[in-house]
Design a protein around this nucleic acid. Structure first.
Lengths: 290, 290
DNA sequence: CAGGCGATATGCAATTTTGCATGTATGAAT
DNA sequence: ATTCATACATGCAAAATTGCATATCGCCTG
């Protein structure tokens, strides 16, 4: 009575994805192989695990039992990878950093330049991304996030306060200055849907002209003169074609954090990167706050 | 960054056993294979895991990290096996029962006869053994133990009280009856080392003639007339060539329990076996107590 | 009701993994 | 010093696993 651990992994992925093909893609093998691993697992456990349907493999209850434990095994295997990475004392090899796209251009490039001059042996990968890269799966070693929460198993350090303010094209700035009573168009986040709270009382007429789910796009819209956008002050100031407008006074915004999984926080490369990153943000605090 | 789970298993076993050959035996593969799996794991993790010494593989610290997590993976894989076995509703297939050797002859054979007549489809395996079969590893589904403790993750049911008393060969019985003042020789467990507490005050001269670590051997010694042995009453009464002697009055002894891992306790075959076992001991309570 | 899509099944060949046989090194016992 | 036992290293052939090409099945759409 002995099961192949990798067969359990196959069961786990088929339970998760529902089809052989999807599971195979995740596992990086041919789906035929997945089918055969399932068959082997069923033989080893002496029980049927899936109903073979025309539209996929449907797990029977026993497969859910397997998947529950296999999932815990996966957690442990990820912990192995992090544990090894976290003990890595070399200042060489791969280091993956993830950061919001908009922070990269104006700021991180400079941090990265300094870092790679100091540590030329490190093979630095940057994932510019807004989705939270999964630090548990070690898709990135270190993340720079605009958020107050470091997350559960993660360790973090606050890099900087931030303020936001309202920015728009010079045309809008002119109009707002000259005729503050005219309607002001806003481009806002989907999640909000309305112009921000805390507007200066001089400006009474505000409406939303567009909502959007991506700040890069909103910056583009603002540059094109579509309306006013609330954004972090570092971004508005650094974006050509935008000027600050007094509609929304500067107000606190989400802080900037650097976070990593606790297991890899102390590793040499991650620590070395922090040693460049933290002083940079300390020096440039004025850029992020009003 | 992806590790083969079975490679982690290889690391675990080599850490535990210290040599390729020993780990290979446990894994049921050739040691060459183990060596290659370690090499693959080291390549995948990008770190050396073992010092290759002439007298074995010595784990470096990173290997201990791996082993810690792999051990947890092993626990989960065992839980899978038990979880599947525990859901098994069939009254067919393999069922492994373990019991102390000395209970088998006089009693369990009858239980087994009844069980296998009622459930002829069950492939019953009996492991007569004194060492606690590892119910976590499912080396047995169900254990009959002489002990008060069901154990940690185990579920149990008390089958019977037990009393012990002193037994010896008819020659000794004669001598004890006629000349109670003469020295009485004892054969006792290693763990004790001295004649039992609670002797009848009529018998003042007692000495240990031999200590032993196995009850079967002690029974043999008693039959051969070496001395008096304290044993469960069911055993003394059922053993030809032994008679009870009044040196040690009957006194409580370890209870008889049936235990199983909680995961498999409710499975059909284990439940069915209990349904024969428990009434048998209920009916025969008098055989085990004085 | 024909055709296309998405999903699984299966035979066969390529590749990978495994085991065996043999060789080497080290330390303990004679 | 020699021998023996134990443990690892490696080349090669056998066995097992894998991927590919192709076939099949059911469903939805037009």
């Amino acid at each position: 009575m002995n099961v192949d651990w990798d067969d359990l992994k196959a069961v786990l992925h088929v339970v998760r994805k529902g089809t052989l093909a999807a599971a195979a893609t995740e596992l990086g093998v041919n789906y035929t192989t997945v089918a055969r691993r399932l068959a082997r697992a069923e033989r080893a456990l002496g029980t049927v695990l899936f109903d073979r349907l025309a539209d996929g493999y449907r797990p029977v209850e026993a497969a859910l039992v397997v998947a529950r434990h296999a999932s815990e095994m996966e957690t442990q295997s990820l912990a192995v990878i992090r544990g090894i990475a976290g003990r890595d004392a070399r200042l060489s090899g791969k280091l993956t950093v993830t950061a919001p796209q908009l922070l990269v251009g104006p700021h991180l490039t400079e941090v990265i330049r300094t870092f790679s001059q100091t540590h030329p042996e490190v093979d630095l990968h940057l994932r510019a991304s807004n989705d939270l890269a999964d630090l548990s799966r070690r898709e990135a070693d270190l993340a720079i996030r605009i958020s107050r929460t470091p997350g559960d198993a993660l360790k973090g350090l606050r890099l900087s306060d931030q303020h936001s303010a309202s920015f728009a094209s010079p045309g809008w700035a002119e109009q707002i200055k000259n005729t503050p009573e005219r309607t002001i168009d806003w481009v806002v986040y989907d999640a909000l849907g309305t112009p921000p709270k805390g507007l200066d009382p001089r400006f009474q007429n505000n409406r939303v002209v567009m909502t959007c789910d991506d700040m890069t796009a909103m910056v583009g819209a603002a540059q094109a003169g579509l309306g006013v956008v609330r954004m972090p002050v570092f971004l508005g100031r650094a974006t050509p074609g935008l000027v600050q407008v007094p509609v929304l006074p500067a107000q606190p915004y989400a802080e900037i954090w650097v976070v990593a999984h606790a297991d890899v926080w102390a590793s040499a490369k991650v620590a070395a990167f922090r040693e460049v990153l933290v002083p940079y943000f300390k020096r440039n605090r004025a850029v992020f706050t009003s």
